[in-house]
């Protein structure tokens, strides 16, 4: 197990938080059609904000750690749409992950954790 995982697990145990929606940051922190990263209870969450999707505006929350490189860089990839699915291309090796379920399009052994996220007025919220 990599060290990043070790940290994440132990702090998750330290801070079990009930309640479905938690405030992560504000709308102002997001960058349209691109990503930023937030700290969430010891985890790094990449947030992608798409102002105009078919369902209106949407925020996706996905794990920031790229399993292939081990670096925390997913939030700095390019957002796109491939075969009717919103995806993120990891910046170092360009593999794609579905923003909806976190699976890697090229390699079934890689996947990223995803969280439910929403915009609530000026707040960005995430469900643990």
């Amino acid at each position: 197990m990599s060290q990043a995982n070790a940290v994440r697990m132990s702090s998750a145990q330290l801070a079990p938080q009930p309640g479905p929606w938690q405030v992560l940051c504000s709308r102002d922190d997001l960058v349209a059609n691109s990503g930023v990263v937030a700290w969430f209870d010891g985890a790094q969450v990449a947030l992608f904000y798409l102002p105009e999707t078919e369902q209106g505006e949407q925020v996706f929350a996905i794990e920031n750690r790229d399993p292939k490189s081990g670096a925390n860089v997913i939030g700095r990839g390019i957002v796109g749409r491939i075969k009717d699915e919103y995806v993120i291309a990891a910046p170092l090796y360009k593999q794609h992950f579905s923003l909806e379920d976190g699976r890697c399009l090229e390699d079934s052994e890689q996947y990223l954790r995803v969280w439910s996220a929403r915009l609530n007025g000026d707040l960005v919220e995430i469900a643990a």
Partner: peptide, 10 residues
């Protein structure tokens, strides 16, 4: 991180 001052701990 947009909501935290720290750098990347990894």
């Amino acid at each position: 991180f947009v909501n935290d001052e720290r750098g990347d701990p990894d």
